[in-house]
């Protein structure tokens, strides 16, 4: 089946089989490599992208089912010449070690902050609960997200 999807604002047309995943399309057909193939069963969150504005694990989405949809990856929320606030925050807080989980965390964080004027730490942690990291122990990822929130003018509720 031929599907048409809008990826990071660009209309793309791809031929897919019944079992081709969205992650395979993004990485192999479109050569966009920030979403990672981790557990391949929707639990680690390394393949997180936005599907019509909502974070999903692209390893569990059959590509044919999203014909006509809009997809956003980390590449789509990163300025051409520089870094977005979450990327900066994670670097400055030491929230990155091997980096494999990082794009997924950034997509979940980006979606969370895009809907908030203020938030609690528990809400932030819950928004990140679908992403696993085996290096940092999470604290520095949360710290990095808090630096990003500060830069974007989003306040922490007590």
């Amino acid at each position: 089946m031929n599907i048409k999807i809008k990826v990071n604002g660009q209309l793309r047309s791809v031929e897919v089989e019944h079992n081709t995943t969205l992650l395979q399309v993004i990485r192999k057909d479109l050569n966009i490599t920030s979403p990672k193939s981790g557990c391949e069963k929707g639990e680690c969150g390394a393949c997180t992208v936005l599907l019509d504005g909502k974070p999903i694990t692209s390893c569990l989405v059959l590509a044919f089912t999203v014909d006509g949809s809009e997809i956003t990856t980390l590449e789509g929320i990163t300025p051409k010449d520089g870094l977005n606030p979450i990327q900066k925050g994670l670097i400055n807080a030491g929230g990155i070690q091997c980096g494999f989980c990082t794009p997924g965390f950034i997509m979940s964080g980006h979606n969370f902050f895009s809907k908030k004027e203020d938030f609690t730490i528990d809400e932030l942690k819950r928004a990140l609960s679908g992403n696993l990291c085996r290096c940092t122990g999470y604290k520095k990822i949360v710290d990095g997200m808090l630096l990003a929130a500060k830069e974007m003018g989003i306040k922490v509720k007590k």
């Binding site: 929707g42 639990e43 969150g45 997180t48 599907l51 909502k54 974070p55 999903i56 694990t57 569990l60 989405v61 979940s108 819950r126 928004a127 609960s129 679908g130």
Partner: peptide
């Protein structure tokens, strides 16, 4: 589940 899986 998780935020991603609840969206799906």
């Amino acid at each position: 589940a998780s935020p991603q899986l609840r969206n799906m």
